[in-house]
């Protein structure tokens, strides 16, 4: 599993949860992303390790490598940001920001399909690794 696949999967789950109005699933996804962000035990890495594939963190993004300002990984930052945004827009300000979860669902899905994640690119532009 790659990060791209994971993003595709997360996007689909968000959209399913929104459509079927499954706040538990949204919550679970927020927790999952937070866990990954905090521990850096990301599912693609773990699965690769289990399968015995050398999948050391490498440039999975489709952007040319940039010189990073911080040692913190952009993938982890993206997970923090996504989980926060999803949590706030879905559980706190849903009446006004109801469209954000939908947007995030499609964004994850689109990132998975296209291989381009604007948020990740943005974090990398900011100097994350």
């Amino acid at each position: 599993m790659t990060e791209r696949t994971l993003r595709l999967l997360v996007g689909l789950l968000i959209l399913i949860a929104l459509y079927l109005e499954l706040p538990e699933l949204i919550f679970g996804l927020i927790v999952f992303m937070l866990f990954e962000g905090i521990t850096n035990l990301r599912l693609p890495i773990l699965l690769s390790k289990i399968q015995g594939i050398d999948n050391t963190p490498q440039q999975h993004t489709d952007e040319p490598e940039q010189k990073s300002k911080f040692s913190f990984e952009a993938e982890r930052a993206m997970r923090f940001a996504a989980s926060a945004l999803l949590g706030v827009s879905y559980f706190v300000l849903n009446e006004h920001l109801w469209f954000i979860p939908w947007f995030m669902g499609f964004a994850f899905l689109g990132a998975g399909i296209s291989g381009v994640c604007p948020m990740l690119m943005g974090f990398k532009q900011l100097g994350f690794k």
Partner: peptide, 20 residues
């Protein structure tokens, strides 16, 4: 590899996210 993939990704990304 990066350059070729980058161009493809850029085209796809621009189009896709534009559509989004």
């Amino acid at each position: 590899n990066l350059e070729t993939k980058g161009l493809s990704v850029k085209i796809t990304g621009i189009v896709f996210w534009g559509m989004v």
